[in-house]
Design a protein around this nucleic acid. Structure first.
Lengths: 197, 197
DNA sequence: TTAATTTCTTATCATACATCAATGCCCAGC
DNA sequence: GCTGGGCATTGATGTATGATAAGAAATTAA
């Protein structure tokens, strides 16, 4: 039931099988279909969501009703609105399933317990926060300076498998483009004989 | 010498005067003039910089030689390239002084010691990481969706005092605009009789 | 004070990307 | 096998912002 998650957590900590069993009481698993939500704007994000199988995304909807995708989470990724989770504030984000998805929900108690049991896990968590910051800062920098084409090239370099799994309009949304613009960027790349990978 | 920093840290933790004295051996203070650097692209960021007086900024320079300002840090703020600091990687960022500045440099040992002495300080640190993430995510969202005017209005609402202290071209750079565009935005706001504050 | 930079504004023109609209594609469900 | 609804492409046109250039204003230096 939690096998993928157990592998994941043991790869990143020294938590033993027995320890995992004791704290797995704080876990919930869930299976959802494409399009179903695990978080909606306005709700408080009480869980981190680990993706065992499938693909989730988080996004905002602005005043003009436009979606802006913040993050994708394929297998072995964790997705969460950290602001809402940590500060107990209503979330700005929606999180829904891009594909049929199996996920594990970790609540605050689980994290606390795991940190108490294992300093390795605690350090892993700390590192994850820094990775998140690094990623966001890089994205800010790209959005400040890079053209549509540069942002797209960066995306397919960073997420080659996602590029294949996602509909193009979602990639466009992640990059801050319209689907039409992304289509033209791709056309231009093809004209110049660009081969991904 | 570290008075402002001592106040700051005691406001955010239960560290005593005596404890502060023992760990203050890990601190360095520095006075720099407007335009001087505390970090350059390519260097590893070995310190967090606390601003006692004055104003620092961090920014990148892209391939076309354009600056993109990532952060401002006035009094009582800490500025650091967390990626470089945590992962020991060469930094993408420059950090220099917008005004003549007095600062305190905290190295890894200081942070470690302070965390060991005080769980309150440790929690404060943890919270700071989450605040950073919240801020970056909000900025990504603005850059994805908002117009020049919306971004500028958001800025002056968030940083009213900075708006007065900074040259406009730096605000423009922070917002991902040219100075000319920001000037037009301001003109249009003035025409519509907008009063800051 | 004058001179010299730097910053801000304004105007014109250029361009990347958005918007709107039409078409074709694909594959999901009947 | 049709049929319909998302999705991708393409073209025509619009618009916000960038680029360039010049002058005004403000700040700093001499």
């Amino acid at each position: 039931m939690f096998q993928n998650f157990k592998n994941y957590i043991q790869n990143h900590s020294d938590i033993t099988d027995e320890q995992f069993i004791t704290i797995s009481g704080y876990l919930k698993s869930k299976v959802i279909k494409k399009g179903e939500f695990v978080l909606r704007q306005g709700e408080i994000c009480g869980y981190s969501f680990f993706v065992s199988k499938g693909l989730l995304r988080s996004y905002t909807i602005d005043e003009q009703g436009k979606e802006h995708i913040i993050q994708f989470a394929p297998e072995d990724w964790i997705i969460v609105d950290r602001s809402s989770y940590f500060f107990n504030e209503p979330s700005e984000l929606f999180i829904d399933a891009v594909e049929d998805t199996e996920l594990v929900m970790l609540n605050e108690d689980f994290i606390t317990q795991a940190c108490n049991i294992s300093t390795v896990y605690r350090a892993f968590n700390h590192k994850a926060l820094h990775s998140h910051i690094r990623h966001l800062q890089k994205r800010v920098n790209l959005l400040l300076g890079a053209t549509a084409e540069q942002r797209y090239l960066d995306f397919i370099k960073l997420y080659p498998e996602l590029t294949l799994r996602l509909p193009q309009w979602m990639i466009a949304s992640y990059l801050g483009l319209t689907p039409e613009s992304l289509s033209r960027v791709r056309k231009e790349l093809a004209r110049r004989n660009f081969k991904p990978h």
